[in-house]
Design a protein around this nucleic acid. Structure first.
Length: 589
RNA sequence: GGGAUCGUAGUUCAGUUUGGUUAGAACGCCGGCCUGUCAAGCCGGAGGUCGCCGGUUCGAGCCCGGUCGGUCCCGCCA
């Protein structure tokens, strides 16, 4: 190219008036007045108005007339103050314009499938097909800048803490405990497969055994599971592991890293320490292991009152080991018509398997509507007094088995908060959730499965329970939760062969199977494994919070759709017979 | 695996409730006018397999069945 830029499109101000400059960029807009022609020239640094005047060069003005949106051009010209009254206050460069003396058209663009100036001008399917165009929009340019700054910030902070950065294999052994693996067939080893890592878990533990006591990696992870608004099949973690530490050390580090990132990327000051909540309390009070604590609206234990009602649903559920919990919305009963209550009920039935949603409203100091007739006058007075209910309050009740009650009411808590505008959108409220159960009973396979992963250390106080009541054993595991998103999760690991074998036993994995799958790790434990533990940040979710978006696709340059496809390059796709033959693979009909 | 919802000019949408002649608007595109705009303005034009397949009907963008694709959710995500 002939005209190489001397400045970017975002930097010219009145200070540059009188300078001759060269700009390169995309035509963002062409405003042709018949005589004078204004173009907005855009690059990732900003926009600058360039002006063609036929009085100065009629031929060039004619060429400028033909320039269309997203053409790539280079211009040389003089930085000039805009005439009085023509300043654009919305643009940092709005006080100046460049009067063009030379024009080089670097590449013309065809008519566009949607407007780069307006992200909403194309639906998502189309934008994903032309993702490189969507990435030109100011919104995604900004998200990618935040992402880039966050990489740098994380690296700087961890480096300052004395961590070493590593890379671990992407082609690894399949370990079919946990999420479904993405498999890669081996050409050389007929019939054998590599797996893409769900996380570099075992490698980082082996690096601890190797003596690299502070490890980190910004790493892609792959999980072949169904997608959500905050889940992609390939996603990025800031993976961290440390030796000779305890849970508090990891939580402290995670706190400092999170604070540092929010400070450096957003100049947002998070609290000095993050609150710590028991898993049990999170479930009981918020109905979630990743509670959004930007607003209160706690779940209320209602069993003792429910016992005194005449409502058989409550009493039967309690008798059968189920639960009754409630939510109170203050001064909002008039927002909940029959129609809206029916919609909420239908939603809870459909998604959370509830049989119904009960409610009462408070009117003139007593219960009204819903299931109020099942409460005696004395009971109503008692509840109104104890729970400080006022007129126009509405109380929702969910009663089912424990898991369903907590999950459904937790979901209702969020839904009601949205409807009532109770969520301070700009707040950032982190907390740690700790003391997760070590094991989860799996009905399908009639055995315990590891809730976090099978390398998680049990709480030393609960070792006895491993024999007597495994379901009660707490894990030394912790999640960092921000605004209802699980942003990071980790644990103190098992570091002795004995304990690891015991854990495998508990989840019903016999020695042979354990050796086949994790023998390399078990063997390593025999040669001086230090106590260690770590945490992994869901990098994309962290960016979502920093960017203020609720969609993970917004913060990934080339994301996949809900069906794990890439609309731009059409992956996945069929491959040649030759390729399959080389891999010893035959497709089933 | 299941549920909900969407699919109509290049694009965003209206039209579907109640089936009926030529499927509209805006933006973009093309042409013309216009010398200070910044969502520039004014005039004109081109542009449609109503996602696809099948059915009902004298007649389907509209009704029915299926299918493909997008999104959101449940299951799943150690």
């Amino acid at each position: 190219m002939r005209l190489k830029r001397t400045v970017t499109c975002g930097q010219l101000t009145t200070k540059n008036i009188g300078e001759e400059v060269i700009l390169n960029g995309w035509v963002a807009k062409n405003r042709d007045h018949g005589g004078v022609i204004f173009l907005d020239l855009r690059d990732r640094y900003g926009k600058t108005q360039i002006t063609f005047n036929p009085d100065l060069d009629a031929k060039m003005a004619d060429r400028a007339k033909r320039l269309g949106m997203e053409d790539v051009i280079a211009i040389k010209g003089m930085v000039t103050a805009r005439p009085g009254g023509n300043v654009n206050a919305n643009l940092p460069t709005g006080e100046v314009e460049v009067i063009v003396s030379e024009l080089e058209v670097l590449n013309e663009a065809e008519p566009l499938p949607f407007l780069v100036s307006d992200r909403e001008s194309g639906n998502e399917e189309l934008r994903l097909e032309y993702r490189y165009l969507e990435l030109r929009t100011s919104e995604l340019q900004n998200f990618m800048k935040i992402r880039s700054r966050t990489y740098q910030s994380a690296r700087r902070l961890l480096n300052a803490e004395g961590f070493m950065e590593f890379e671990t294999p992407v082609l690894m052994k399949s370990t079919p405990e946990g999420a479904r693996d993405y498999l890669v067939p081996s050409r050389i080893h007929q019939g054998k497969f590599y797996a893409l890592p769900q996380s570099p878990q075992t490698y980082k533990q082996l690096l601890m055994i190797a003596g690299f006591d502070k490890y980190f990696q910004i790493v892609k992870c792959f999980r072949d599971e169904d997608l959500r608004a905050d889940r992609q099949p390939e996603f990025t973690q800031i993976d961290i592991e440390m030796s000779f530490i305890d849970q508090d050390d990891i939580m402290g580090l995670a706190t400092r890293v999170t604070q540092g990132i929010f400070k450096e990327v957003l100049d947002y000051q998070l609290p000095e320490t993050f609150p710590v909540m028991d898993y049990h309390d999170a479930m009981e009070i918020y109905g979630s292991d990743k509670p959004d604590i930007r607003f209160e609206l706690p779940l209320i234990e209602f069993a003792t009152y429910a016992e005194k009602t005449e409502f058989s649903v409550f009493k039967d559920n309690l008798a059968g080991g189920g639960r009754v919990k409630a939510l109170i919305l203050k001064n909002a009963a008039d927002h909940y018509s029959r129609k809206i209550l029916d919609e909420l009920t239908e939603w809870l039935k459909t998604y959370y398997g509830l049989k119904g949603l009960a409610f009462i409203k408070v009117e003139q100091g007593a219960f009204a509507a819903g299931i109020s007739k099942f409460f005696s006058a004395e009971l109503q007075t008692e509840i109104i007094g104890n729970l400080a209910l006022k007129d126009n309050d509405i109380m929702f009740f969910v009663s089912d088995d424990e898991a369903r009650t907590l999950q459904a009411l937790g979901a209702l808590r969020i839904e009601l908060a949205k409807r009532e505008n109770l969520i301070p959108e700009t707040d950032i409220k982190p907390l740690f959730v700790t003391n997760f159960p070590l094991l989860d009973w799996d009905e399908d396979s009639q055995r315990y499965i590891a809730m976090h992963h099978p390398f998680t250390s049990p709480n030393p106080e609960d070792i006895e329970l491993m024999t007597s009541d495994p379901g009660k054993v707490r894990a030394r595991a912790y999640d960092l939760v921000i605004n209802g998103y699980e942003v990071a999760g980790g644990s103190i690991r098992i570091h002795t062969r004995q304990m690891q074998s015991r854990m495998f036993e508990l989840i019903g994995m016999d020695e042979e199977e354990a050796n086949a799958r994790f023998g390399f790790l078990l063997r390593a434990f025999k040669y001086g494994a230090p106590p260690h533990g770590g945490i992994a940040f869901g990098f994309d979710r962290l960016i979502m919070l920093l960017a203020g978006t609720d969609n993970i696709r917004d913060v990934i340059a080339f994301p996949k759709t809900t069906s794990a496809a890439s609309l731009m390059d059409d992956a996945p796709s069929f491959v040649d017979e030759d390729q399959l033959r080389e891999l010893h693979i035959k497709l089933m009909e």
